[in-house]
Amino acid sequence: MAYKYKEVADSLRKAIKTGKYEPGEHLPDQNQIAKNFNTTRITVHKALQLLMVEGMIYSKRGAGTFVRKDYIADDHSKFGKVSPIDKPFGATKTNAGKSVTSKVLELSARIPTEDEADKLLIKPTEPVYVIRRVRYVNGVVFAYENTIMPTAITTLTEDILKKSIYGHMQKEGMTIEGTHRIVSADKATQIDVETGIAEELGEPVLVINQLSYLEDGQPFEISESRFPYKTSQLTADITL
C-alpha cells in the first residue's frame, strides 16, 4: 500500500501535468490540501517537498506554494529536471579563498532568438545581454563562458563582469535558486584554443550547458561553459 504522502503527491503532480494548476499559479494552502485529502498537514508538507525536489513547485515564505514558472510537463525537456545537487554557485563562490578574475571578451545586447525567448520565458522583443568572458583562478585559465541574460534582470557593466554576476545579483536582493544542467564532453574548437581552454583543435573539453532560475522559477540565464580537461573535475555528494 502506498504511503499517504505519495498519494497526495501523485494527485497534485497529475493536476499540474494536466494543466489544472498552470505555471506560476498559486496552489491551495496546506490546510486546505490536508482537508481535501482527509490527512494531516505534516503529510501534505512531505508531499510538497517531494514535488519541490522534482522541480515542479516552489514555496515562498509568507506567500504560499506555486507551480514553477519554468515548469514544462514534458519529462524529456532539454534541460532535464531540478535536483538538490543542481545549485549554481558560480566560479567565485566555488573557488572561495582563491583569486578569481575575468577577461571580458564581449558585453553587448540584441533581440533574442526564438529558442532563447522560449527558454527564458520572455517576449521576442525583450533584449538580452550577450556575455563572453574567460575566467581565471589564481591566474590559470578556469573556463570560457558564453551567457545570454535578459537585460531586464539587472544592469551589467564590464566592471561587474570582471568580478561576479551572481554576487552582483544577490547584492540587489535577488535569490538564485538553482539550475537545469547538462554536462558533456566536446572536441576543442578554434575559440577554445584562442581562449586557452585547449592547446590544440580536437582536444577533449568539458562542457556544461545550463538554464538558471530565480526563487520564483523565472529563468534568468542561458549559458555554456567550457573547461580544460586537464584541470577540471566534477564532484557530487549524493545522499540516499
Rank of each mutant, 00 (worst) to 15 (best):
Tyr144Leu: 15
Ala109Thr: 14
Ile131Ala: 00
Thr18Val: 15
Glu224Gln: 15
Met52Tyr: 02
Leu234Ile: 13
His45Ala: 11
Lys93Gln: 15
Ile85Trp: 14
Thr94Asn: 12
Met174Val: 00
Ala152Leu: 06
Lys123Tyr: 09
Pro204Ala: 09
Gly202Ser: 07
Thr157Lys: 04
Phe227Cys: 02
Ala117Ser: 14
Met1Cys: 06
Gly62Trp: 09
Leu120Lys: 04
Thr189Ser: 15
Arg133Asn: 03
Ser108Asn: 12
Ile111Arg: 13
Ile182His: 08
Asn146Gly: 00
Leu48His: 03
Val205Cys: 04
Ser102Ala: 14
Ile182Tyr: 06
Val44Glu: 01
Lys163His: 10
Asp29Cys: 10
Ile111Thr: 13
Glu126Gln: 15
Ile131Arg: 00
Ile165Met: 07
Leu206Lys: 09
Ala9Cys: 06
Ser184Glu: 12
Gly178Ser: 15
Leu201Thr: 08
Arg135Met: 04
Thr157Trp: 05
Pro204Gly: 08
Lys14Glu: 14
Thr92Val: 15
Thr94Val: 13
Lys98Gln: 15
Arg133Gln: 09
Val207Ser: 03
Asp29Leu: 11
Met149Tyr: 02
Leu51Arg: 03
Arg110Leu: 05
Leu12Cys: 05
Gly97Asn: 08
Tyr229Gln: 11
Arg110Lys: 14
Val130Arg: 10
Gln190Asp: 13
Ser83Cys: 09
Thr239Val: 13
Ala47Pro: 01
Asp115Thr: 15
Asp159Tyr: 06
Ala91Thr: 10
Gly196Glu: 03
Val193Gln: 06
Thr147Ala: 12
Leu206Pro: 00
Thr189Asp: 06
Ile197Pro: 04
Ser164Cys: 01
Glu22Tyr: 12
Ser83Phe: 08
Gly167Cys: 04
Gly55Asp: 06
Gln190Val: 13
Ala198Cys: 08
Ala152Lys: 12
Arg61Met: 09
Thr43Gln: 01
Val141Gln: 04
Ile72Asn: 11
Thr157Pro: 05
Thr65Lys: 01
Asn146His: 13
Arg132Ile: 01
Gln30Cys: 08
Phe220Ser: 01
Val207Cys: 03
Asp86Asn: 15
Lys14Asn: 12
Leu214Pro: 00
Ile111Asp: 11
Asn95Trp: 03
Asp186Trp: 07
Ala47Cys: 04
Leu201Trp: 03
Ile16Tyr: 01
Val82Asp: 02
Asp10Gln: 10
Val207Pro: 00
Lys35Met: 10
Thr39Asn: 05
His76Ile: 09
Ile16Lys: 01
Tyr3Met: 12
Val183Met: 12
Ala63Val: 14
Val130Asn: 10
Thr151Ser: 04
Lys103Gly: 05
Val141Lys: 07
Pro23Lys: 07
Tyr136Ala: 06
Leu156Cys: 08
Lys46Asp: 09
Glu177Asp: 09
Phe37Arg: 05
Asn38Pro: 01
Phe227Thr: 01
Tyr58Leu: 11
Gly64Cys: 10
Gln30Asp: 12
Ser164Lys: 00
Ile191Met: 13
Gln210Ile: 02
Ala188Asn: 06
Glu106Ala: 03
Glu106Gln: 09
Thr147Arg: 03
Asn36Cys: 05
Asp118Glu: 14
Glu114Leu: 11
Asp118Ile: 04
Ala9Asp: 02
